[in-house]
Amino acid sequence: MLLWINGPFGGGKTQTAHELQRRLPGSVICDPEQVGYGLHRMLPASMRGDFQDHASWRQGVFEILDLVLTEHDGMVIVPMTIVEPQYFAETVERLREKGHEVRHFALLAERETILNRLRDRGLGVAPLLRVVGQQDLLLRREQFAVNKLDRCLEQLSKPEFGEHIWTDATTVAEVANHIADTTGVTLTPNIDGRLRGRLRRMAVTLQHARV
């Protein structure tokens, strides 16, 4: 089975994917962004737009996920924002047409919730910046995500991008539990305390920081 975790940039896809992987033995994370980064490295900086617009990205993602689903026995977890219906059809729907079991979840939240999460990628300095009146300073490095936010929320709220999970008042562990319950898989118990969970999420953020 493939679990495609969709959502706006900053919506919690990567954190949810890692929570599922650590509590689901034998599962793997396959991140389609890596295909996009490879395409960007082959292009001059002036030509680096949205890599999803390249047919080669969509084809490459389909081929790799098809291969992993065919050869790997465990769960395959894909954290990836995808909101264009054509691109969704060429990846998610195409994998289903190939005969793979694909469950798609769109993580949604209110706009301000997402903006706060983008600020929190600064690893806890947002409250300090708020005190000195610079609370939006961290959003400057997340301008791509901010620019895409309204489009993402509008598109992903549509029925064709179900199943929807609203995450404003839920923890990462609770979102993972919901996905597991919905798909009928069993996760190992979550024994993280508040501090340990926070440190684990910070480590994931650092691991996926864009430089």
Rank of each mutant, 00 (worst) to 15 (best):
G7N: 10
G7E: 00
G12W: 07
K13H: 00
K13I: 06
T14C: 08
T14A: 05
T16E: 14
H18R: 14
E19I: 03
R22M: 03
R23E: 08
L24W: 07
L24P: 00
L24T: 14
P25M: 04
G26M: 09
S27Y: 01
S27D: 06
V28M: 11
I29W: 07
I29N: 02
D31R: 00
P32L: 06
V35K: 03
V35D: 00
G36D: 08
G36F: 10
G36M: 04
Y37S: 09
Y37C: 11
G38Y: 09
H40I: 04
H40A: 10
R41L: 13
R41F: 06
R41Q: 14
P44V: 12
P44Q: 08
A45Y: 06
A45F: 01
D50R: 05
Q52E: 13
Q52R: 12
Q52W: 01
D53V: 15
D53F: 00
A55R: 14
A55I: 11
W57A: 03
R58H: 14
G60Q: 07
F62V: 02
F62M: 07
I64M: 14
L65F: 00
D66C: 12
D66F: 08
D66T: 07
V68Q: 05
V68N: 02
L69G: 13
L69C: 14
T70H: 11
E71M: 13
H72W: 15
G74L: 09
V78W: 06
P79I: 00
M80K: 01
M80V: 05
M80T: 04
I82S: 07
V83D: 05
P85W: 05
Q86D: 06
Q86R: 12
F88N: 01
F88G: 03
A89M: 01
A89F: 10
T91Y: 05
T91N: 05
T91I: 02
E93I: 05
R96D: 11
R96K: 00
R96C: 13
E97W: 10
